[in-house]
């Protein structure tokens, strides 16, 4: 239960941050293109708790939907707020906005905007350092040819890394079935990489952690993006909300945590906005 609760704490921080972010996009305070991870928080939250338990501080290579990675692995909240507000006091002085956040203190490398470039970059960093590495990709980014090339080489070199595919089924709004007739799990297996299709349930992710950071593995994690590809609007049709499912399972403690983070995040946003 401790694991589930700890993951929920991280997820709650991320969820409440993203809800506030959506509000500030809608109110016009955030003008940069913003990609919230609402609905997908449990992937990075679970991985951060597992890494912590294993006493590992992995190299992190995320993409544009990266707020949850940053927050789950310990990035400072106020720096991210300032970054979204386009300020010089932001984590990357206004360079990275929402989509390219990087922070050397938590070993998180920023993203350049070329979808999937973090695949080969993460593989190269892992090879050169031999440090445990997590590469976060979307179901669309894995279609980039250079991701597949890098995956093949990571397998050949038996690198201690995880390819995490946040599979929300959409490339912006185009479904996977329209784009391809293959699954990344099958491709990874053909590269001799251990690969699994799992849900974004923290326990399912934990079950696979025995394979982490030994040889390359690929987790294709089905998840549900609650918001539009970009911006603060929610999608009209939503399959499920992992956050509500976990809240229900955990019970009252979860509600208390949720309220606590809600207040904390609101206060932090207010404080940062007053600074302007």
């Amino acid at each position: 239960m401790n694991y589930r609760l700890n993951v929920f704490k991280k997820a709650s921080l991320c969820r409440n941050f993203e809800l506030s972010t959506s509000d500030h996009i809608n109110s016009g305070k955030i003008y940069v293109p913003t990609y919230v991870s609402t609905g997908q928080e449990f992937i990075s939250s679970s991985l951060s708790i597992i890494s912590k338990t294993k006493k590992i501080k992995p190299l992190l290579f995320g993409q544009h939907r990266c707020h949850s990675i940053y927050l789950s692995f310990g990035g400072k909240i106020d720096y991210l707020i300032d970054e979204l507000l386009g300020r010089d006091t932001g984590i990357n002085k206004g360079f990275s906005g929402s989509a390219s956040v990087g922070n050397s203190k938590i070993n998180m490398y920023g993203h350049d905007g070329l979808m999937g470039s973090n695949g080969p970059i993460g593989v190269g960093a892992c090879f050169a350092s031999k440090k445990p590495t997590i590469i976060f990709l979307g179901d669309a980014a894995v279609e980039e040819d250079y991701v597949l090339g890098a995956m093949g080489w990571a397998s050949k070199k038996k690198l201690p890394l995880i390819f995490v595919i946040e599979d929300n089924n959409f490339s912006i709004a185009t479904e996977k079935a329209v784009r391809r007739n293959w699954e990344i799990k099958d491709i990874a297996k053909s590269f001799k990489i251990k690969a699994f299709d799992i849900k974004d349930c923290p326990l399912e992710i934990k079950y696979k952690s025995k394979y982490f950071f030994k040889q390359p593995i690929l987790l294709n994690i089905f998840t549900n993006r609650i918001n539009e590809h970009r911006g603060g609007e929610s999608l009209k049709k939503n399959k499920y909300d992992r956050y509500l499912i976990e809240m229900k399972k955990i019970g009252k403690k979860a509600t208390i945590i949720d309220q606590k983070f809600k207040k904390l995040i609101e206060k932090l946003w207010q404080k940062r906005l007053e600074k302007r």
């Binding site: 080969p120 970059i121 190269g124 960093a125 892992c126 090879f127 050169a128 040819d145 080489w153 050949k156």
Partner: peptide, 24 residues
């Protein structure tokens, strides 16, 4: 002396990753 695969685009990226760690 590291022989890369023949995937040129990926190779450029792999070396960038190495550049974050060492001086390749």
């Amino acid at each position: 002396l590291i022989d890369l695969s023949m995937a040129d685009v990926a190779n450029g990226g792999i070396v960038v990753g190495a550049g974050l760690i060492e001086k390749p």
